[in-house]
């Protein structure tokens, strides 16, 4: 298919066939990961800069592995230990990277709109959004979509229950958009203080009782609770959170026994998830990590010329 997205900033304008295309590309890459030698020369000679202004282990490592498996030359540029720490603007950083010949930039930044901004300033390089503030994390959503699709097949008509801090979650925003575009019904639950004002604008509905949300769900998606939110007073205590919204055997008792349990990681045991669920047979958490590498390989391949050529 003719690929029309130069950058991967968010999934707002992606249609179902484009999501499907990426799922299929990811499957090919996933198969590659089973080979004894994983490295292929698909993107040899391309330069990708991983530009991280926020601490991240999983996303950065996952991108780096994906890049290395495709023979990309990788530069890791972190905010600390570079000029950004001394107050260089994002615009100047962007132009510097482009002057160095970056074919693509993977950016993780604490400010909403940072990836969009970078994309507007770069004339040549492709931008992959590795997370901008609480706005979007498109690669996480795509890898989640792939993980679910790999297990369930066609996702149309399925139901996803998402429990937790939707308000502050870029993962939630991108996942809701991705899953609902594939025909999945999305229901949210969590403390009302952690819900966005207009969930219907994202294509989701809010259920006050998490037991109602997980009932009949094919996928139960748990969001990470940042401890700062409790310190800010958004809910009274972590223990109270766990009692009412944590995924433990009680909550799972309301769900179907074959429902998939997903979490973007890193998990807080005994807050949003209990160990029995995290380590149980329904947990897809480690599968998501593997999918992440395959998905990022697929995206790099598609956006950096693998298909266009």
């Amino acid at each position: 298919m003719e690929w029309r997205h130069r950058h991967v900033l968010d999934l707002d304008s992606w249609d179902r066939s484009e999501l499907q295309h990426i799922l299929e590309q990811t499957r090919s890459m996933d198969e590659l990961l089973d080979r004894p030698i994983k490295k292929v020369p698909a993107l040899r000679g391309k330069l990708v800069v991983n530009l991280f202004f926020e601490p991240s282990t999983r996303t950065r490592v996952s991108f780096e592995l994906a890049e290395k498996f495709l023979s990309v030359d990788v530069v890791n540029w972190t905010a600390s230990g570079s000029s950004t720490g001394k107050g260089e603007t994002l615009r100047d950083t962007a132009w510097t990277l482009e002057a160095m010949g970056a074919d693509a930039v993977v950016v993780r930044h604490g400010a909403v709109g940072a990836a969009d901004y970078l994309a507007k300033k770069l004339r040549r390089s492709v931008v992959f959004n590795g997370g901008d503030g609480a706005h979007a994390h498109p690669t996480q959503a795509l890898l989640d979509l792939y993980t679910a699709w790999k297990s369930l097949g066609d996702l149309h008509g399925r139901k996803l229950a998402m429990i937790g801090d939707v308000l502050h979650s870029r993962v939630a925003r991108s996942d809701i958009i991705a899953f609902s575009r594939m025909g999945v019904k999305v229901e949210l639950s969590g403390p009302p203080t952690l819900m966005p004002r207009a969930p219907e604008a994202l294509g989701a509905t809010f259920r006050k009782d998490p037991h109602d949300a997980v009932r009949d769900a094919d996928i139960i998606y748990l969001l990470r609770i940042q401890r700062e939110r409790q310190e800010e007073g958004m809910f009274p205590s972590l223990d109270e959170y766990h009692q009412f919204f944590g995924a433990d055997s009680r909550l799972m008792g309301s769900a179907r026994p074959d429902a998939l349990v997903m979490h973007p990681g890193p998990i807080n045991r005994r807050v949003e998830i209990s160990s029995e669920v995290a380590d149980g047979p329904q947990s897809m958490i480690l599968g998501q990590v593997r999918s992440g590498v395959a998905l990022r390989m697929a995206l790099l391949f598609v956006c950096l010329g693998g298909v266009r050529q």
Binding site: G133, S169, P196, R197
Partner: peptide, 15 residues
């Protein structure tokens, strides 16, 4: 940062 409603919901910016 932005109006609380559609914009804050979609953007993740504080309403």
């Amino acid at each position: 940062q932005v109006n609380e409603g559609i914009c804050s919901t979609l953007s993740g910016l504080k309403g």
